[in-house]
Write a protein that binds this DNA or RNA. Structure first.
Lengths: 144, 144
DNA sequence: TTTATTTCGGATAATATTATCCTATTTGTA
DNA sequence: TACAAATAGGATAATATTATCCGAAATAAA
């Protein structure tokens, strides 16, 4: 469904959020160990999240990645996915047609619309805060 | 959402179905021209569909690809997707966790379940016949 | 101001996906 | 039987994705 990069990005953002609640910055090393991802690759993905203003980075000693506490609740899964995979999940024809819309739909256009819409709503309605709190309360897990 | 291979496979199967209604076999060349896909790659995908018993191939002179007429209505999108992409769309964790189930769900497990289920239902309920008839009646389009 | 720490970013490598090419095999027909 | 028409399938190439490495730039603290 998502690219590997996007999977890592989502998990990384959740881990950063959890730590930002405690005012702790985290490094790519900590992150990749915690979410079980390749370190250097994860660092690249973090850069993308920084560029898209999803997470904040602080360089130099005692630096690391963090998310403003009051931003965690406002940040939605959709923003993370967009920062990494772009809008390919929403946009684009299910069968790869160049032109595919209501006027000239591909064979699966209308069938797909429902699923796409469900996915979009899910991504736009799920906040980082919610995901981070589920981990903290032990309802969900980041690893294994 | 789907791999390129899967997109081509779905379109190819629809085109074969349309022609099988008229008792015409079609070649990889005709197919790839009609669905705007690379010929040799499409041929490989057709082989996979044959192996998985989705379409029938007839070698030699006057050969080509076809689908038994009484099979067209019974064949579901899910079977085509499965033949090419496997069950990765249904199975597997949205965040790539090795272990992710009701007992030990990943952060998005329950959110994703809804979307996955919608997708699964859509694929399993959509028949080749339906897709082929929509094309024939000019409601949907295979190209552009 | 120097040093240690840490992210940034370019270059490169490994792997997976997509695509092409060429020959073998099958089958109908002259 | 010989030939032509077709799919099957192996080998290879091109591209995209995933992953690694290393030096540059920034920053805090000694």
């Amino acid at each position: 469904m998502f690219s590997k990069a996007c999977e890592y990005g989502i998990k990384a953002a959740i881990f950063i959020a959890i730590n930002s609640f405690e005012n702790r910055r985290v490094s790519p090393k900590e992150i990749s160990e915690e979410i079980d991802s390749p370190q250097a690759f994860t660092a690249k993905i973090l850069q993308a999240l920084v560029r898209h203003n999803v997470v904040k980075s602080v360089r130099g000693a005692h630096g690391g990645f963090e998310i403003d506490k009051d931003k965690i609740a406002k940040t939605k899964l959709s923003q993370i996915v967009y920062a990494i995979d772009g809008d390919s999940i929403y946009k684009g024809c299910g069968l790869g047609l160049h032109t595919c819309d209501e006027n000239r739909p591909c064979p699966v256009h209308n069938k797909f619309k429902v699923v796409r819409e469900e996915l979009r709503a899910m991504l736009e309605n799920t906040s980082l805060e919610q995901l981070a709190l589920d981990i903290k309360s032990g309802v969900t897990f980041l690893k294994l």
